[in-house]
Amino acid sequence: MQVRFNARKHAALVGAVAALVTFSAAAHHSFAIFDHSQTYTLKGTVREFQWTNPHGYIDLAVSEGPEGIDEFTIELTSINMLRRAGWRSTDVKAGDEVTAIVAPLLNGQKGGLLLELNVPDGRTLVPPVPAINTFQRTPAP
């Protein structure tokens, strides 16, 4: 009985998520270029925090992360969505030591989508990525 209830709940959730993906695609683009099955946890120094549309970007010099990754281009959502979620253009600046959880590009290039960011003042900032829970997290090493 419990299993059946959960299955129904899950089906509803999948439907809601699918709808969100459709509409986010309408707003800018599909998130299908990013790996939904794993995440990278990257520690490093911010080279630049770019408060721009259609996306914000963090260019990161990586000190700790998967082997072979020294630089990483981190894509954020639209800055309008970030601002509505409470982000400010001053939240991150060049030189900051940060930890980022990202969904990497599927094609192996050194870039990915930001899912979570720890900044030097101790805050954890989460960008308003539509259907963010569809990205499976890899536990941090």
């Binding site: 683009h29 549309n53 630089e71 281009t73 894509e75 050194k110 870039g111």
Partner: peptide, 19 residues
């Protein structure tokens, strides 16, 4: 659209320009 790092490759697929 101040800095759009996304583009279409020759096959028409979306790509992200990385540093």
């Amino acid at each position: 659209c101040e800095d759009n790092r996304e583009y279409a490759d020759e096959s028409g697929a979306t790509r992200l320009r990385v540093q």
